[in-house]
Design a binder for these strands. Structure first.
Lengths: 264, 264
DNA sequence: GCCCATTTGTGCGTATGTATG
DNA sequence: GCATACATACGCACAAATGGG
């Protein structure tokens, strides 16, 4: 008997939840698996039942199963190995955040990322119409400010805003609990959706007073300001973030989307 | 009789060229269409034969045709419209470069990109072992230096290196001809492959003398240095670029890849 | 080294649904 | 209503990679 951490029945139950008339079956299957991962039912490394078993256990044919699983591979949720099986993709859930902002600082060798240690410094309900509200098209926002130590060498300041109504989890967790969380994972678990793309805007400017103070910089100091808007689907922004980076020698690594046309 | 700018026979011929034992048929079909576009046989807006016709004309079944076409949609080469057909995606081939470096400066409104006017300033054969040779794993490189005017407001300096043997086109074209070219398109036409991803490395540093001189900056001036390494497929780097950006108020826009895990 | 079971990958043929004009 | 053309789905067959005996 082979260990079988993920049951086809469990997927079947999730599938029922996400099946809706009009929704393709391969999409329903995808959603079921994604939500199962998001809710912790499936853990990284878990093996899924093989294609045949799924096709038998679920009201979905083999080809359609394969299409759904292929999409999950494309999205990075699954890993499939010929002759072995399909596995929930690993996530390095360490103490430090794995991917703080879709871009990371690299060390001298260029091969490793500097570790990142976030410290939540404040939370505020926002109701003014700022740039964030236009980007998120939300009336109420929660701003979470953090000082993030980069490899204990220097720190950056982050202002992170989400729709307060849509993602109440960010208002509910204590600041202490937020510290250990990867915000992308949090969004994934709360919404069952993956962040599809992030628009980054880079500006050389003076940081706001809050940031200067938190980073211990003198007034008027120039910073690199990185604005990030993350989307779950095309046009559906889920968070708005400003990161202020003081002068540093360290290189910041971003992985850019190559087929970034997106136009008619 | 409906206008039919793209013949199934043409695709068939291309398909023969790209079919190789071991290569999936849907990949061969993809390559055939991509190369047909790259070589100018198909132009933006052209309509492909419908799925049925392709399935009849080519030794590929409907489902496999669909899979290949779907991939082309994902890559942005094709656009498919329900009830209408499959069309070669449009490219805004203007006088100015459309996407100089996977990231662009935006104007005051935030809605438009500043126009970009490249001016090629030099070309040099490289045979030393620089950082470029490690990135490209190439022994001989061609470096093309350019001064790129951003909306006629300010200029950035670019050093662009490709493998001289792999992409001789960059050595063959005159500097004048290179001016009007989008380098990504040039690579696409020469190799028939699309750039899949770009690694960006951002550094606050002093620019090299060449760059300072070309941009008319005083010695020791701090610049934003953007290093870009573009990949055709995972691990297959195709160009290495350094861009030096003088201090500016303008925002630089980058579209980041959201599923940027890429690790085990 | 070789066979074999397991499991994913590729490919075919067909049927039916649905958006467009 | 109707023809066109893409979209989804099924069921099957066989190829190819993997790991164990």
């Amino acid at each position: 008997m082979i260990t079988e951490p993920v049951s086809a029945k469990e997927i079947g139950r999730m599938l029922d939840k996400f099946s809706r008339p009009g929704l393709p079956k391969y999409t329903a299957l995808r959603d079921a698996v994604v939500h199962a991962v998001a809710s912790g039912k499936f853990a990284p490394g878990d093996r899924l039942p093989n294609e045949q078993e799924l096709a038998e256990a679920l009201p979905i044919s083999l080809g359609t199963i394969q299409r759904g699983l292929r999409q999950l591979v494309d999205e990075g949720v699954l890993q499939r190995r010929h002759g072995q099986g399909s596995f929930i993709a690993g996530r390095t859930t360490n103490d430090e955040m794995s991917h703080p902002f879709h871009c990371r600082f690299i060390d001298d060798t260029g091969a490793n990322y500097l570790k990142v240690y976030p410290k939540t410094t404040g939370r505020k309900q926002l109701s003014d119409k700022g740039l964030w509200s236009a980007a998120l098209s939300a009336a109420k926002g929660v701003e979470i400010t953090r000082v993030i130590s980069i490899g204990k060498e220097f720190s950056v300041y982050s202002s992170f805003v989400v729709d307060a109504l849509r993602l109440p989890i960010f208002s509910e967790l204590s600041l202490r609990e937020l510290d250990g969380e990867n915000f992308k994972d949090l969004i994934f678990r709360a919404s069952g959706q993956l962040i599809k793309r992030v628009d980054l805007f880079l500006r050389q400017a003076e940081a706001p007073k809050d940031a200067l103070k938190a980073l211990g910089l003198s007034e008027g100091a120039q910073c690199l300001c990185l604005k990030a808007i993350a989307y779950l689907t095309e046009g559906d922004a889920v968070y708005y973030q400003n990161i202020y980076i003081p002068p540093t020698n360290r290189e910041l690594h971003v992985i850019a989307d190559a087929r970034a046309s997106g136009f008619e």
